[in-house]
Amino acid sequence: VTLFVALYDYEARTEDDLSFHKGSKFQILNSSEGDWWEARSLTTGETGYIPSNYVAPV
């Protein structure tokens, strides 16, 4: 499992996005959609889309 960590805070703009804070960790579920990845937050357990340029591999 590849884990990613948030580099910045992000406020969701749609109900499909995940809001998160810098330092939040994610499991990436689908990275084939270009700049928006489907991810599960390891902090909240919620699933949604995150901007790929806001995260980096742990």
Rank of each mutant, 00 (worst) to 15 (best):
V1T: 13
V1P: 10
V1F: 14
T2I: 13
T2S: 11
T2Q: 13
T2P: 12
T2Y: 11
L3S: 06
L3E: 09
L3N: 05
L3T: 09
F4G: 03
F4W: 15
F4C: 07
V5W: 06
V5F: 09
A6D: 00
A6I: 02
A6V: 02
A6F: 01
A6L: 02
L7K: 05
L7D: 01
L7P: 00
L7N: 03
L7Q: 04
Y8R: 09
D9R: 04
D9E: 06
D9Q: 04
Y10K: 01
Y10S: 02
Y10L: 02
E11W: 09
E11P: 04
E11F: 09
A12S: 12
A12P: 04
T14E: 09
T14I: 06
T14H: 14
T14A: 12
E15H: 12
E15M: 10
E15Q: 12
D16K: 15
D16N: 15
D17H: 15
D17I: 12
D17P: 02
D17L: 10
D17G: 15
L18C: 04
L18H: 02
L18G: 00
S19T: 09
S19D: 04
S19K: 04
F20L: 04
F20W: 01
F20C: 03
H21Y: 12
H21V: 14
K22S: 07
K22G: 04
K22E: 07
G23T: 02
S24N: 14
S24E: 15
S24K: 03
S24V: 11
S24H: 15
K25N: 07
K25R: 11
K25P: 05
K25Q: 12
K25D: 03
F26R: 00
F26I: 04
F26T: 00
F26L: 08
Q27Y: 14
Q27A: 09
Q27K: 07
Q27V: 15
I28H: 00
I28S: 01
L29Y: 06
L29Q: 05
L29C: 08
N30T: 08
S32T: 12
S32M: 12
S32L: 11
S32R: 10
E33F: 12
E33Y: 12
G34Q: 13
G34P: 15
G34S: 13
D35S: 09
D35Y: 14
D35L: 12
W36Y: 12
W36K: 11
W36S: 07
E38D: 04
E38I: 15
A39F: 03
A39Q: 00
A39Y: 02
S41V: 08
S41Q: 07
L42Q: 06
T43P: 05
T43I: 09
T44W: 02
T44A: 03
T44R: 03
T44F: 03
G45L: 06
G45E: 05
G45M: 07
G45W: 06
E46D: 08
E46H: 09
E46Q: 12
T47F: 08
T47Y: 09
G48W: 03
G48P: 01
G48I: 04
Y49S: 06
Y49A: 05
I50M: 01
I50E: 00
P51T: 02
P51I: 03
P51D: 05
S52P: 07
N53A: 14
N53T: 11
N53W: 15
N53L: 09
N53P: 05
N53V: 09
Y54Q: 05
Y54F: 11
Y54D: 01
V55E: 01
V55N: 00
P57R: 07
V58S: 07
V58W: 14
V58T: 07
V58Q: 08
